[in-house]
Nucleic acid binder design. Structure first.
Length: 565
RNA sequence: GUGCUAGUAGCUCAGUCGGAUAGAGCAAUGGCCUUCUAAGCCAUGUGUCGGGGGUUCGAAUCCCUUCUGGCACGCCA
């Protein structure tokens, strides 16, 4: 619709092309100012005319083609050309489009592959609020890209290799035993890890001992590997519980350890390409000409480090998956690390280096303090989820005690609240964790959206015999409240594309609020069951479209919607 | 010190490839359940868009500068 209008305007303006016009045309801030608007100020200079005059001339020029373009009325206000669409035509167009399979969207991904590295918790540590963010953001981006027709490879790049396991082995041998770890699991691992760090402050020899155990691991020492494997299994058990609650899964769990035997080949390649430099006993890639600190490849003790493992990992992924793009959903604090890794790939001569994207998110703190396992200033993902589910359960008890499947609904609502809360603001914002915010179920929250869905579903259920009619009277849907709702629904495809382009699930979350708000107003003002047949039929179609878009958009966030709540 | 990042209503934030009176939610106050789920709807108030320059017909948005918070700057990840 917009395109057709642009074409016509371009024809009349002469020296402006259609694409530029598409960008200029905007949606007015107010319903009373029409459906589309063209500010004519930029033409004033070129044409040496008053913008008002230009707008008037355009208005005249378009008069003849109004009907053809589906335009109802054209106004000129303050140098703006305000275009009012014929509502019946507009409504018909969008209802037709959205009713089609997948809301009539175009699959732009055309099967290309995107690798996504997210969640990636560290073994032997608890899964906390911070991990929740990368997991939920990553999962949503996966759904969004899949929706657009990309093939996404979900990689959980487990933090399962590194000096910390040397520490853990030392700590295990000194302060724990098989039975305690078997019994208490990750909790025990955490306890001895914390103890190690405390002891090491006064006893640096412990660090040396830990380093040598890690070297043993890198040399495939049987005892070291056995303990490490055991710790890994214990950790995965806990992570799996959280993933199941969240409804998140992965295609690959190849973590850092998987790349340990691939680092030597990388070192060779770097040597051949004359990129490796010795510095203070370690091997580095000098990046000073790019104003970056050097990128560490091997430590002075010969061990690999996360830079080199990340480089080895991306080379492997490119080889295996032939990705079009590779995303890393990690904290903003790792920006420099990824800049270095990406630059390393570039200087190694791989022209696809620009396919690597760091998708950063802000830091989570607790009462203004950094999260820290050691000081106990920490909140675990599982606790948050269970707390929210409990909250949902008690609300159901009050608001809808006769509801069947209370447990199931409480789970969907509680988890939905957490996911939505985590995705509602831009990724980059720092978050100071607050129970009050997380457990809020009113206003711009997940439960609000789910509630809206349940309302819509409930209406439809009461009209099972009232099949959604093929032909409806679109005139019913042109009054303001319905029209605003349809306009909101019509923005779905654009919203998904924007969210994908900016790697920003919050755009979907905000969109859902817009749709839900428009629907709740419609719900309040336009009776359906009591309306006459003509109105009832048309409104039911609108309820059905709204319901299906809410459900679909929620799924893009990784959120479930109960049919009743 | 260098770099990255954020600064918009009392609080949490949208809006930032320049455009019409800067918008939501929370909190506060008042109204709406004999009508489709009140986890809802409606109404009311709040702004040096961190400060200062500049570009422009027009700046929260672009450029410069400055202040404040968060973070990162080689043998942890």
């Amino acid at each position: 619709m917009k395109k057709k209008i642009c074409k016509c305007i371009a024809k009349n303006l002469g020296n402006i092309n259609e694409d530029d016009l598409m960008k200029l045309i905007e949606i007015p801030p107010d319903e009373e100012l029409g459906d589309f608007a063209l500010p004519c100020f930029s033409f004033a200079k070129i044409m040496h005319k008053n913008p008002k005059v230009i707008a008037e001339e355009l208005k005249e020029a378009l008069q003849g083609e109004k009907q053809d373009l589906g335009i109802e009325k054209i106004d000129v206000v303050n140098g703006y050309l305000n275009i009012f669409m014929n509502r019946v035509e507009y409504v018909r167009y969008w209802v037709d489009k959205i009713t089609k399979a997948d809301f009539g969207m175009v699959k732009t991904g055309s099967g290309k592959t995107i690798c996504m590295d997210y969640s990636s918790p560290n073994i032997a540590k608890n899964f906390h609020v911070g991990h929740l963010r990368t997991t939920v953001i990553g999962n949503s981006l996966y759904k969004i890209y899949e929706k657009l027709g990309f093939k996404v490879v979900r990689i959980n790049h487990l933090g399962d290799w590194g000096t910390q396991f040397g520490k853990l082995i030392v700590a295990y041998k000194k302060w724990s035993n098989k039975d305690s770890v078997t019994e208490k699991g990750i909790e025990e691992l955490l306890r001895i890890y914390v103890k190690f760090n405390q002891e090491a402050e006064n006893n640096p020899e412990l660090i040396e001992e830990a380093r040598s155990w890690f070297i043993k691991m890198e040399q495939n020492d049987e005892e070291a590997i056995q303990i490490w494997k055991w710790f890994k299994e214990i950790s995965l058990l806990e992570f799996t519980r959280v993933y199941e609650l969240l409804g998140v899964s992965f295609d690959s769990f190849t973590g850092e350890s998987f790349y340990r035997d691939k680092v030597p080949a990388l070192v060779e390649e770097l040597k051949t390409k004359n990129l490796l430099m010795e510095s203070q006993g370690a091997n580095v890639i000098d990046l000073s000409q790019y104003d970056m600190p050097p990128c560490l490849i091997t430590k002075s003790d010969g061990g690999s480090i996360y830079h080199s493992r990340d480089i080895a990992a991306v080379l492997f992924r490119k080889e295996k998956y032939h990705f079009e793009k590779c995303l890393y959903v990690t904290g903003l604090e790792q920006s420099l690390h990824f800049k270095q890794v990406f630059k390393a790939i570039e200087v190694m001569g791989y022209e696809w280096a620009d396919a690597l994207v760091h998708v950063p998110y802000g830091l989570v703190s607790l009462e203004g303090e950094k999260l820290s396992t050691r000081s106990g200033n920490i909140i675990y993902a599982e606790d948050i989820l269970h707390e929210a589910i409990g909250r949902a359960k008690s609300l159901i008890q009050i608001k809808n005690p006769d509801l069947p499947d209370k447990e199931e609904v409480a789970k969907k609502v509680g988890v939905g609240a957490i996911i939505f809360h985590d995705l509602f603001n831009q990724r980059i914002k720092n978050v100071d964790f607050s129970w009050e915010d997380v457990l809020s179920f009113e206003g711009t929250t997940g439960p609000y959206v789910q509630y809206t869905y349940a309302r819509a579903k409930s209406i439809l259920k009461k009209n099972i015999d009232e099949m959604i009619p093929e032909t409806i009277d679109f005139n019913v849907l042109i009054e303001d409240t319905s029209y605003v709702l349809i306009k909101a629904l019509s923005g779905y495809e654009e919203t998904i594309i924007k969210a994908a382009k900016r790697y920003e699930p919050s755009i979907i979350a905000r969109y859902l609020i817009t749709v839900a708000t428009a629907f709740n107003k419609f719900y309040h003002e336009c009776p359906i069951l009591q309306a006459d047949e003509k109105k009832k039929k048309a409104r039911l179609v609108l309820v059905d479209l709204t319901q299906s878009i809410i459900l679909d958009a929620c799924s893009l966030l990784g959120m479930d919607c109960p049919e009743e709540m």
